[in-house]
Design a binder for these strands. Structure first.
Lengths: 219, 219
DNA sequence: GAGCGTATCAAACGTCTGTTTGAAAGTAAA
DNA sequence: TTTACTTTCAAACAGACGTTTGATACGCTC
């Protein structure tokens, strides 16, 4: 049987770890809504109900907080499950794109890391190297292999790479340009149904593009 | 015959207008390289070899400078020339995409406005409304009509809109993710040949996607 | 050259930023 | 309770930011 102290440690952890968690959650929230320069330590601490000094005490700096807030486990799990699935490559591409778009766009999705990733693309930050290494490079590699399965060996590396770029570009567009799209189509709501329709569209559009590439290359 | 004064006005304008021009050029340079929050008035003035107060004297504020620095004449001219061209819609899409990618990626291209536009997408700024109204909305409308010409009337508005998003998304990806792509493929140089190859790829990829949409819709 | 409006300049302003500090509060073992 | 250590806190720090100011220099008309 556990002592009272042990229960406390397991269930609610130490007070210190609680504030660490609250800071990380708040950081993910704020970093996904503002650029790194736009996000302020004071707002993160306000949302975490912690003192301004807490960030530097627990994480050393604002940079350190961002680095620790990044966690691409969910994105990696998505890729792992997809690779191990028994379906054919085309269906796996469809599945992945729907899941990925839900990660990027669904506000209810707890994984805001991909939204941070998307935001950091344009504005290099000390954390960008980590993002590229742990999230973006594996993602491109994963999609490259998947497209290669579909397109066969007749297509060159450069064309294959551009196909991956085309797919990723379509996905990120909806995240990057969200403020613009809201102004262009004010009445459009990005609910789960709409997000899945977008994922389906990107899959259909891209599969046709890949297939056509195949034809061009063989001719 | 012109007097000396008139010649002076026409050729080198007033000293005041010269610094205005230098400020606008420097602003376009800096705003296209950093986010609005990341770009500093001091650096703009340093590059323009002007005093820090010059921005507020000539443009009222940093916001005003950005608003005046924006000028989408080249993008509009591109669309106008394309609409008036005699070619078939598919070839016109190819032409436009190559020109557009050159505007977005070619460092030698004097039109950095599109690079600013791309940068501002993610980070709403007081100038975003003007950008959407004068550049993005017309661009989407132009591409929507072009795709409509290719795809016919059998496709719904929602699907057509998503096609335009797919095209624009692919184009902007190369601009947005430039820092990332440089890390992923360090040896790849974005010279004129590579940019045109990218434009060709996006055109081929998208035409296949559009065509496939047509087939799906008719079936 | 005198006078006048415009443009430039160094300097300062107030505010916001990330970060540091030193004291206070909390925690847990002896 | 005492002791030693960790965590929180209000306050202040140094620097960067956009902007303002008042003096100075310039260009022009008379």
């Amino acid at each position: 049987m556990m002592t009272e102290v042990e229960i406390k440690e397991v269930e609610i952890k130490t007070a210190s770890e609680q504030t660490r968690m609250r800071l990380l959650d708040a950081a993910r929230e704020v970093f996904s809504q503002h650029s790194f320069q736009g996000a302020t330590v004071r707002e993160i601490c306000r949302r975490a109900e912690a003192n301004v000094a807490a960030v530097n005490y627990h994480f050393g700096s604002k940079d350190g907080l961002l680095a620790e807030a990044l966690n691409f486990a969910q994105l990696a799990a998505l890729q792992k499950a997809n690779v191990e699935a028994a379906e054919c490559p085309k269906i796996r591409l469809r599945m992945f794109l729907c899941d990925f778009m839900l990660m990027l766009l669904d506000e209810k999705n707890p994984s805001s890391q991909c939204r941070i990733m998307a935001r950091e693309l344009a504005d290099p930050t000390p954390a960008l190297d980590k993002i590229v290494r742990e999230a973006i490079a594996p993602l491109h590699e994963f999609l490259g292999k998947l497209v290669r399965e579909i397109v066969g060996d007749k297509v060159g590396e450069a064309e294959l790479r551009r196909c991956v770029h085309s797919i990723v570009g379509q996905c990120l567009f909806y995240r990057h340009s969200h403020p613009v799209l809201q102004r262009l189509h004010p009445k459009l709501r990005y609910d789960r149904k709409e997000i899945e329709a977008i994922g389906e569209h990107i899959a259909e559009f891209s599969l046709a593009g890949i297939k056509h590439l195949d034809k061009v290359s063989r001719s």
